[in-house]
Simulated scan of single mutants.
Amino acid sequence: MNKAVSETSKGVAYGLAAYTMWGSFPLYFALFEGIPAWEVLIHRVVWSCVFLAVVISLLKRWSPVKVALRRPKRLGFVLGCAIFIALNWGIYIYAVETRQVMQASLGYFLTPLVNVAMGMLILGERISRLQVVAVVLAAVAIVYQIVLLGVLPWITLALAFSFGTYGLMRKKVDLDGLSGLFVETLLLLPLGLLALAWLSAQEMSHLAESTNSALLLMSSGIVTAIPLLAFAGAARRLRLSTVGFLMYINPTLQFLIAMYVFHEPLGTEKLISFVMIWVALAIYSWSAWNGRARA
Protein backbone atom coordinates (compact mmCIF):
# COMPACT_ATOMS: atom_id res chain seq x y z
CA MET A 1 0.00 0.00 0.00
CA ASN A 2 2.81 2.41 0.92
CA LYS A 3 4.49 1.73 -2.40
CA ALA A 4 1.24 2.45 -4.26
CA VAL A 5 0.79 5.73 -2.37
CA SER A 6 4.41 6.65 -3.10
CA GLU A 7 3.96 5.98 -6.83
CA THR A 8 0.76 8.05 -6.88
CA SER A 9 2.54 10.92 -5.13
CA LYS A 10 5.34 10.75 -7.69
CA GLY A 11 2.76 10.72 -10.47
CA VAL A 12 1.04 13.83 -9.10
CA ALA A 13 4.42 15.57 -8.76
CA TYR A 14 5.33 14.69 -12.36
CA GLY A 15 1.89 15.83 -13.57
CA LEU A 16 2.12 19.13 -11.71
CA ALA A 17 5.61 19.69 -13.12
CA ALA A 18 4.55 18.91 -16.69
CA TYR A 19 1.45 21.10 -16.74
CA THR A 20 3.14 23.94 -14.83
CA MET A 21 5.94 23.98 -17.40
CA TRP A 22 3.46 23.94 -20.29
CA GLY A 23 1.43 26.66 -18.59
CA SER A 24 4.55 28.82 -18.23
CA PHE A 25 5.42 28.58 -21.94
CA PRO A 26 4.24 32.18 -22.61
CA LEU A 27 7.05 33.47 -20.39
CA TYR A 28 9.58 31.37 -22.32
CA PHE A 29 8.42 32.19 -25.84
CA ALA A 30 8.17 35.90 -24.95
CA LEU A 31 11.99 35.80 -24.79
CA PHE A 32 12.09 35.32 -28.58
CA GLU A 33 10.96 38.90 -29.20
CA GLY A 34 12.29 40.09 -32.56
CA ILE A 35 12.56 36.56 -34.01
CA PRO A 36 9.66 35.63 -36.35
CA ALA A 37 7.34 32.89 -35.06
CA TRP A 38 7.97 30.72 -38.14
CA GLU A 39 11.74 30.81 -37.55
CA VAL A 40 11.28 29.86 -33.89
CA LEU A 41 9.05 26.99 -35.08
CA ILE A 42 11.74 25.71 -37.47
CA HIS A 43 14.32 25.69 -34.69
CA ARG A 44 11.90 24.05 -32.28
CA VAL A 45 11.36 21.18 -34.73
CA VAL A 46 15.08 20.74 -35.47
CA TRP A 47 16.40 20.98 -31.91
CA SER A 48 13.54 18.90 -30.49
CA CYS A 49 14.51 16.13 -32.88
CA VAL A 50 18.18 16.39 -31.85
CA PHE A 51 17.46 16.45 -28.11
CA LEU A 52 14.86 13.66 -28.29
CA ALA A 53 17.40 11.49 -30.15
CA VAL A 54 19.80 11.98 -27.23
CA VAL A 55 17.08 11.16 -24.67
CA ILE A 56 15.97 8.04 -26.55
CA SER A 57 19.60 6.90 -26.73
CA LEU A 58 20.09 7.40 -22.99
CA LEU A 59 16.85 5.55 -22.22
CA LYS A 60 17.64 2.84 -24.81
CA ARG A 61 14.23 3.28 -26.42
CA TRP A 62 15.20 2.91 -30.10
CA SER A 63 13.22 -0.32 -30.58
CA PRO A 64 9.74 1.25 -31.10
CA VAL A 65 11.27 3.94 -33.32
CA LYS A 66 12.92 1.34 -35.57
CA VAL A 67 9.68 -0.65 -35.78
CA ALA A 68 7.76 2.49 -36.83
CA LEU A 69 10.34 3.44 -39.47
CA ARG A 70 10.23 -0.07 -40.95
CA ARG A 71 6.52 0.43 -41.74
CA PRO A 72 6.50 3.28 -44.27
CA LYS A 73 2.86 2.64 -45.18
CA ARG A 74 1.82 3.46 -41.61
CA LEU A 75 3.94 6.61 -41.44
CA GLY A 76 1.15 8.57 -43.13
CA PHE A 77 -0.65 9.00 -39.82
CA VAL A 78 2.62 9.97 -38.12
CA LEU A 79 3.25 12.59 -40.83
CA GLY A 80 -0.30 13.88 -40.31
CA CYS A 81 0.41 14.14 -36.58
CA ALA A 82 3.66 15.97 -37.34
CA ILE A 83 1.92 18.53 -39.54
CA PHE A 84 -0.83 19.25 -37.00
CA ILE A 85 1.51 19.51 -34.00
CA ALA A 86 3.82 21.83 -35.97
CA LEU A 87 0.79 23.95 -36.91
CA ASN A 88 -0.23 24.04 -33.25
CA TRP A 89 3.28 25.05 -32.15
CA GLY A 90 3.55 27.77 -34.78
CA ILE A 91 0.19 29.36 -33.97
CA TYR A 92 0.95 29.25 -30.25
CA ILE A 93 4.33 30.97 -30.72
CA TYR A 94 2.63 33.61 -32.87
CA ALA A 95 -0.02 34.12 -30.17
CA VAL A 96 2.68 34.79 -27.56
CA GLU A 97 4.65 37.10 -29.85
CA THR A 98 1.54 39.16 -30.64
CA ARG A 99 0.39 39.12 -26.99
CA GLN A 100 -2.78 37.12 -27.62
CA VAL A 101 -2.08 34.59 -24.87
CA MET A 102 -5.61 34.89 -23.51
CA GLN A 103 -7.00 33.58 -26.80
CA ALA A 104 -4.41 30.79 -26.70
CA SER A 105 -5.45 29.81 -23.18
CA LEU A 106 -9.10 29.69 -24.28
CA GLY A 107 -8.02 27.36 -27.10
CA TYR A 108 -6.55 24.89 -24.61
CA PHE A 109 -9.60 25.19 -22.34
CA LEU A 110 -11.69 24.36 -25.39
CA THR A 111 -9.58 21.37 -26.53
CA PRO A 112 -11.18 18.66 -24.30
CA LEU A 113 -14.62 19.65 -25.58
CA VAL A 114 -13.37 19.60 -29.19
CA ASN A 115 -12.04 16.10 -28.51
CA VAL A 116 -15.48 15.02 -27.27
CA ALA A 117 -17.19 16.53 -30.33
CA MET A 118 -14.71 14.87 -32.72
CA GLY A 119 -15.12 11.53 -30.98
CA MET A 120 -18.88 11.78 -31.41
CA LEU A 121 -18.94 13.09 -35.02
CA ILE A 122 -15.95 11.24 -36.51
CA LEU A 123 -15.49 8.09 -34.43
CA GLY A 124 -19.17 7.59 -33.63
CA GLU A 125 -18.51 7.51 -29.89
CA ARG A 126 -21.54 7.69 -27.60
CA ILE A 127 -21.52 10.54 -25.11
CA SER A 128 -23.85 11.45 -22.26
CA ARG A 129 -26.49 14.17 -22.40
CA LEU A 130 -24.45 16.32 -20.03
CA GLN A 131 -21.46 16.10 -22.36
CA VAL A 132 -23.67 17.14 -25.28
CA VAL A 133 -24.79 20.14 -23.20
CA ALA A 134 -21.13 21.00 -22.49
CA VAL A 135 -20.18 20.88 -26.19
CA VAL A 136 -23.21 23.00 -27.20
CA LEU A 137 -22.43 25.56 -24.48
CA ALA A 138 -18.83 25.83 -25.72
CA ALA A 139 -20.08 26.37 -29.28
CA VAL A 140 -22.44 29.10 -28.02
CA ALA A 141 -19.49 30.79 -26.26
CA ILE A 142 -17.54 30.95 -29.53
CA VAL A 143 -20.57 32.25 -31.49
CA TYR A 144 -21.08 34.81 -28.70
CA GLN A 145 -17.53 36.11 -29.25
CA ILE A 146 -18.02 36.30 -33.01
CA VAL A 147 -21.35 38.17 -32.75
CA LEU A 148 -20.58 40.59 -29.90
CA LEU A 149 -16.88 41.22 -30.53
CA GLY A 150 -17.25 41.03 -34.31
CA VAL A 151 -14.02 39.05 -34.58
CA LEU A 152 -13.47 35.38 -35.32
CA PRO A 153 -11.28 34.00 -32.47
CA TRP A 154 -9.15 32.13 -35.01
CA ILE A 155 -6.22 31.54 -32.64
CA THR A 156 -8.56 29.86 -30.14
CA LEU A 157 -10.20 27.71 -32.80
CA ALA A 158 -6.97 26.87 -34.64
CA LEU A 159 -5.21 25.74 -31.45
CA ALA A 160 -8.18 23.70 -30.24
CA PHE A 161 -8.87 21.98 -33.58
CA SER A 162 -5.21 21.42 -34.53
CA PHE A 163 -4.49 19.77 -31.17
CA GLY A 164 -7.80 17.92 -31.27
CA THR A 165 -7.02 16.58 -34.75
CA TYR A 166 -3.52 15.68 -33.59
CA GLY A 167 -5.03 13.65 -30.75
CA LEU A 168 -7.47 11.99 -33.12
CA MET A 169 -4.73 10.91 -35.55
CA ARG A 170 -2.45 9.92 -32.65
CA LYS A 171 -4.94 7.14 -31.82
CA LYS A 172 -3.86 5.44 -35.06
CA VAL A 173 -0.17 5.49 -34.14
CA ASP A 174 1.28 2.69 -32.01
CA LEU A 175 3.98 4.81 -30.37
CA ASP A 176 4.40 6.22 -26.87
CA GLY A 177 4.57 10.00 -26.44
CA LEU A 178 8.37 10.24 -26.45
CA SER A 179 8.99 7.95 -29.44
CA GLY A 180 6.01 9.38 -31.31
CA LEU A 181 7.17 12.99 -30.99
CA PHE A 182 10.68 11.99 -32.07
CA VAL A 183 9.43 10.27 -35.24
CA GLU A 184 7.14 13.24 -35.95
CA THR A 185 9.98 15.74 -35.69
CA LEU A 186 12.25 13.35 -37.64
CA LEU A 187 9.82 13.43 -40.57
CA LEU A 188 9.85 17.24 -40.48
CA LEU A 189 13.63 17.45 -40.01
CA PRO A 190 14.61 17.57 -43.74
CA LEU A 191 12.20 20.46 -44.34
CA GLY A 192 13.51 22.21 -41.21
CA LEU A 193 17.14 21.86 -42.29
CA LEU A 194 16.33 23.17 -45.79
CA ALA A 195 14.57 26.17 -44.22
CA LEU A 196 17.57 26.86 -41.98
CA ALA A 197 19.91 26.63 -44.97
CA TRP A 198 17.74 29.09 -46.91
CA LEU A 199 17.68 31.51 -43.96
CA SER A 200 21.47 31.38 -43.73
CA ALA A 201 21.88 31.91 -47.49
CA GLN A 202 19.57 34.95 -47.30
CA GLU A 203 21.42 36.22 -44.19
CA MET A 204 18.11 36.25 -42.31
CA SER A 205 18.97 33.66 -39.67
CA HIS A 206 19.04 34.75 -36.03
CA LEU A 207 21.08 31.70 -35.04
CA ALA A 208 24.41 33.41 -35.74
CA GLU A 209 23.21 36.83 -34.57
CA SER A 210 24.54 36.40 -31.03
CA THR A 211 25.44 33.71 -28.52
CA ASN A 212 22.29 34.48 -26.51
CA SER A 213 19.94 34.08 -29.48
CA ALA A 214 21.73 30.88 -30.56
CA LEU A 215 21.43 29.34 -27.08
CA LEU A 216 17.82 30.45 -26.80
CA LEU A 217 16.87 28.88 -30.15
CA MET A 218 18.73 25.66 -29.35
CA SER A 219 17.08 25.46 -25.92
CA SER A 220 13.66 25.09 -27.58
CA GLY A 221 14.38 21.38 -28.05
CA ILE A 222 15.06 20.84 -24.36
CA VAL A 223 12.05 22.94 -23.32
CA THR A 224 9.84 20.85 -25.61
CA ALA A 225 11.08 17.47 -24.39
CA ILE A 226 11.32 17.93 -20.59
CA PRO A 227 7.57 18.50 -19.92
CA LEU A 228 6.83 15.53 -22.17
CA LEU A 229 9.10 13.29 -20.06
CA ALA A 230 7.41 14.55 -16.87
CA PHE A 231 3.98 13.91 -18.40
CA ALA A 232 5.02 10.36 -19.34
CA GLY A 233 6.04 9.77 -15.72
CA ALA A 234 2.62 11.02 -14.57
CA ALA A 235 0.64 9.01 -17.13
CA ARG A 236 2.33 5.77 -16.05
CA ARG A 237 1.43 6.30 -12.39
CA LEU A 238 -1.96 8.02 -12.38
CA ARG A 239 -5.49 7.24 -13.47
CA LEU A 240 -6.62 8.95 -16.66
CA SER A 241 -9.24 10.95 -14.73
CA THR A 242 -6.54 12.42 -12.45
CA VAL A 243 -4.36 13.36 -15.42
CA GLY A 244 -7.43 14.92 -17.03
CA PHE A 245 -8.07 17.21 -14.08
CA LEU A 246 -4.40 18.22 -13.83
CA MET A 247 -4.59 19.23 -17.49
CA TYR A 248 -6.53 22.39 -16.62
CA ILE A 249 -3.45 23.78 -14.83
CA ASN A 250 -1.91 24.57 -18.23
CA PRO A 251 -4.55 26.96 -19.66
CA THR A 252 -5.27 28.42 -16.21
CA LEU A 253 -1.64 29.49 -15.81
CA GLN A 254 -1.64 30.88 -19.35
CA PHE A 255 -4.77 32.88 -18.58
CA LEU A 256 -3.22 34.32 -15.39
CA ILE A 257 0.04 35.17 -17.19
CA ALA A 258 -1.91 36.90 -19.97
CA MET A 259 -3.82 38.99 -17.44
CA TYR A 260 -1.21 39.80 -14.80
CA VAL A 261 2.12 39.64 -16.68
CA PHE A 262 1.23 40.73 -20.22
CA HIS A 263 -1.71 42.88 -19.04
CA GLU A 264 -3.97 41.78 -21.88
CA PRO A 265 -7.42 43.41 -21.74
CA LEU A 266 -10.33 41.31 -20.52
CA GLY A 267 -13.58 43.00 -21.47
CA THR A 268 -16.99 41.95 -20.19
CA GLU A 269 -17.90 40.16 -23.45
CA LYS A 270 -14.66 38.16 -23.46
CA LEU A 271 -15.04 37.33 -19.75
CA ILE A 272 -18.57 36.01 -20.34
CA SER A 273 -17.30 33.72 -23.13
CA PHE A 274 -14.56 32.42 -20.80
CA VAL A 275 -17.12 31.78 -18.05
CA MET A 276 -19.32 29.86 -20.50
CA ILE A 277 -16.34 27.65 -21.47
CA TRP A 278 -15.47 27.11 -17.80
CA VAL A 279 -19.05 26.09 -17.02
CA ALA A 280 -18.99 23.74 -20.03
CA LEU A 281 -15.76 22.19 -18.73
CA ALA A 282 -17.26 21.79 -15.24
CA ILE A 283 -20.30 20.01 -16.72
CA TYR A 284 -18.08 17.79 -18.88
CA SER A 285 -15.74 16.95 -15.98
CA TRP A 286 -18.67 16.15 -13.67
CA SER A 287 -20.20 13.86 -16.29
CA ALA A 288 -16.88 12.13 -17.02
CA TRP A 289 -16.15 11.66 -13.31
CA ASN A 290 -19.59 10.18 -12.61
CA GLY A 291 -19.29 7.89 -15.63
CA ARG A 292 -15.95 6.50 -14.46
CA ALA A 293 -17.25 6.13 -10.89
CA ARG A 294 -20.19 4.05 -12.11
CA ALA A 295 -17.91 1.97 -14.35
Results as ranks from 00 to 15, higher is better:
199 L>I: 03
183 V>S: 07
155 I>W: 13
175 L>H: 06
189 L>H: 02
174 D>V: 11
139 A>R: 06
193 L>P: 03
203 E>Q: 15
187 L>I: 12
144 Y>N: 08
130 L>Y: 14
159 L>G: 06
176 D>V: 03
166 Y>F: 14
190 P>T: 00
182 F>N: 05
188 L>M: 11
176 D>M: 06
141 A>V: 10
159 L>S: 06
132 V>G: 14
137 L>S: 10
184 E>L: 01
138 A>Q: 05
200 S>E: 13
181 L>A: 11
194 L>I: 04
204 M>A: 13
171 K>D: 12
205 S>C: 08
200 S>C: 01
170 R>D: 04
201 A>N: 01
146 I>D: 03
192 G>S: 05
203 E>R: 12
196 L>N: 04
196 L>H: 01
168 L>D: 08
178 L>S: 09
192 G>M: 08
147 V>Y: 14
201 A>T: 00
175 L>W: 04
134 A>S: 14
142 I>M: 11
190 P>K: 01
195 A>T: 00
150 G>S: 12
160 A>C: 08
173 V>Q: 03
137 L>F: 11
208 A>V: 15
182 F>W: 12
193 L>S: 05
186 L>F: 11
170 R>Q: 11
135 V>H: 10
202 Q>N: 04
167 G>D: 04
195 A>M: 03
171 K>T: 10
197 A>R: 01
180 G>T: 04
178 L>E: 08
166 Y>A: 05
194 L>V: 09
190 P>H: 02
203 E>H: 15
190 P>S: 02
156 T>H: 14
196 L>K: 00
167 G>I: 00
151 V>R: 14
170 R>T: 02
174 D>T: 12
193 L>A: 07
133 V>Y: 15
177 G>E: 05
190 P>R: 01
208 A>T: 15
177 G>H: 02
163 F>D: 01
168 L>Q: 05
181 L>P: 07
152 L>T: 03
174 D>N: 15
202 Q>M: 08
188 L>Y: 05
130 L>V: 12
201 A>C: 00
